[in-house]
Amino acid sequence: MNDSELKKRTKLFALRVMKLVGALPENAVGRPIGNQLIRSATSVGANYRAACRGRSKAEFVSKLSIVIEEADECC
């Protein structure tokens, strides 16, 4: 898998999460969970794109660790 394929997959992931959150109930439980899930899911793609623009391998690895944290939060 190359970087453009992963960029596409992270975008599709965010869109699928948005659709999922749209199906959550609008109550005191669904709203905060949905908001946090959208923030972390969209952050996966944004941070992956930032990692791809890293100026060094160390910067890439550092930013990629943020991607992993956000993906774990989505789980």
Rank of each mutant, 00 (worst) to 15 (best):
D72G: 04
T10G: 00
A71P: 00
L6G: 01
V21P: 01
V67D: 03
V21I: 02
E69T: 10
E70V: 06
G54W: 01
M1W: 07
F60W: 12
A41W: 08
E59H: 07
T42V: 07
R53Q: 14
M18V: 02
E73I: 11
V17T: 12
I68M: 00
Y48N: 01
V61K: 12
D3V: 08
N35F: 09
G30R: 04
L12M: 12
G45C: 02
R49W: 02
A23K: 13
N2E: 13
T42D: 09
I68L: 13
S43P: 08
R31D: 12
K57I: 09
N27D: 15
G54A: 15
N47F: 05
I38R: 13
E70P: 07
L12P: 00
R53D: 10
L20P: 05
K7T: 15
A23D: 14
E70I: 04
K8H: 11
A46G: 13
K8A: 15
K11F: 10
K7Q: 14
K63N: 09
L64F: 14
L20D: 01
S40Y: 11
C75W: 04
L6M: 14
D3E: 03
R31F: 05
L37I: 03
S40V: 14
A51Y: 10
S65C: 08
A50S: 10
E69V: 06
A50E: 15
E59I: 07
G54V: 01
I38C: 09
F60G: 08
R31V: 15
S4G: 01
L20A: 13
N35K: 12
S56E: 06
R53N: 13
R53C: 06
T42S: 11
I38L: 14
N47H: 09
V44F: 08
I68R: 13
A50M: 09
A23C: 10
S4C: 04
I33V: 15
E5N: 09
R53Y: 05
V29Q: 11
M18I: 11
L6A: 06
A50H: 06
V61F: 03
N35A: 15
S40L: 03
D72T: 08
V61Y: 09
K11W: 03
V61N: 14
R53M: 08
P25K: 12
K63L: 15
L6I: 14
V17S: 05
N2H: 05
L12R: 12
G22W: 00
N2A: 02
R55P: 00
L6F: 14
R39I: 04
K7I: 11
A23E: 15
E69K: 11
K19F: 01
I66L: 09
V44D: 04
R16G: 14
E26F: 01
S4T: 12
C74A: 08
L6S: 01
R16A: 13
A46R: 11
T42H: 07
A46F: 04
E5F: 07
P25Q: 06
I66M: 03
T10Q: 10
L24W: 00
S62I: 00
C75S: 09
K7S: 13
V21M: 04
V21W: 03
V17A: 00
S43I: 05
E26C: 01
I33Q: 05
D72P: 00
M18D: 11
T10F: 15
N2Y: 10
G45P: 03
N2G: 15
V21Q: 04
E73C: 08
G22F: 02
A23P: 01
L37S: 07
A28T: 13
S62H: 11
Y48M: 11
F13K: 05
R39G: 06
A28P: 00
A28D: 14
